[in-house]
């Protein structure tokens, strides 16, 4: 089987017509194949996220991870870029949606594309994956432990972002949620509340909450990494994308 993959930094058109940096990894096959937009976590557009992007290519998907901090810190180290974006007030929801839309348009424009695009996001990107799926026409979305999709912040907690549960009626595609039972943000109660919203609006979803895991169990370079659970959860992701994006 021919299994060559091309991974490279590219430029795509993001929100507002801005040219933004992105990391692309795709199989060099004629297709047709599905596509994945990888939404990086708050600490940035970093090496482990690029590794995740390459994994999707190796699994047969064209994948693009937009650098959500391109505007604040073009060319900077990922950690410095994350700090610069934070100092500038973070990534506005509207801009995130525009950047994911740009990545999805780029992927659908590839000659190998079967026109099916999914998103996956981690941590803050989990929330953003849900946001994108409620704002854009997509074929699948994965939320990996995204906080504040549902759940009110504690009293006196001056949250600068909005919970998204009210957008549930607009969810355009099946949702896979992967969570840690020991995570407090989102807590099992928060994800149960999201599940209720999804049921109420007749949305297709699949949630897995893993015992023995907290936040960021996919993060291979952090103490929160749970190898066995990450292997199991990767299997869930590939099964989900296989059903919704392949072919």
């Amino acid at each position: 089987m021919y299994d060559a993959v091309l991974a490279e930094t590219i430029s795509i058109t993001g929100h507002g017509g801005d040219r933004i940096e992105a990391y692309s990894a795709r199989p060099l096959t004629p297709g047709p194949i599905g596509s994945v937009v990888v939404i990086h976590h708050m600490p940035g557009y970093d090496a482990p996220t690029k590794e995740i992007t390459r994994r999707f290519a190796a699994e047969g998907y064209a994948a693009v991870c937009p650098n959500l901090y391109s505007r604040e810190a073009p060319g900077a180290d990922p950690d410095d870029a994350a700090a610069a974006a934070r100092a500038a007030g973070g990534v506005p929801d509207e801009r995130l949606v525009g950047d994911v839309a740009g990545a999805a348009a780029y992927l659908r424009g590839l000659p190998s594309s079967n026109q099916k695009v999914g998103t996956i996001g981690y941590c803050s990107g989990g929330r953003q994956s849900f946001l994108a799926a409620c704002s854009l026409d997509l074929e699948a979305a994965v939320d990996c432990y995204g906080a504040f999709v549902t759940g009110r912040p504690p009293e006196g907690f001056p949250l600068q972002i909005e919970p998204l549960a009210h957008l549930t009626p607009d969810l355009s595609c099946p949702l896979l949620g992967l969570f840690g039972a020991e995570d407090q943000h989102p807590s099992p109660a928060d994800t149960a509340a999201l599940e209720e919203e999804l049921k109420k609006h007749g949305k297709e979803y699949e949630f897995h909450t893993y015992e023995g895991a907290g936040h960021a169990f996919f993060a291979v370079d952090r103490p929160s990494y749970r190898p066995q659970i990450a292997v199991e959860a990767w299997g869930r992701v590939l099964d989900f994308f296989g059903r919704n994006l392949a072919g």
Partner: peptide, 29 residues
């Protein structure tokens, strides 16, 4: 107080000393 880049904890108190006019790498963290 958020996820660190390097410290082996889920959350840390992160302090960045910056000069944005000199670019994102003008940072002591």
């Amino acid at each position: 107080i958020d996820h660190p880049q390097h410290a082996p904890y889920e959350h840390t108190v992160n302090i960045d000393f910056l000069n944005p006019a000199k670019g994102p790498s003008a940072r002591v963290a």
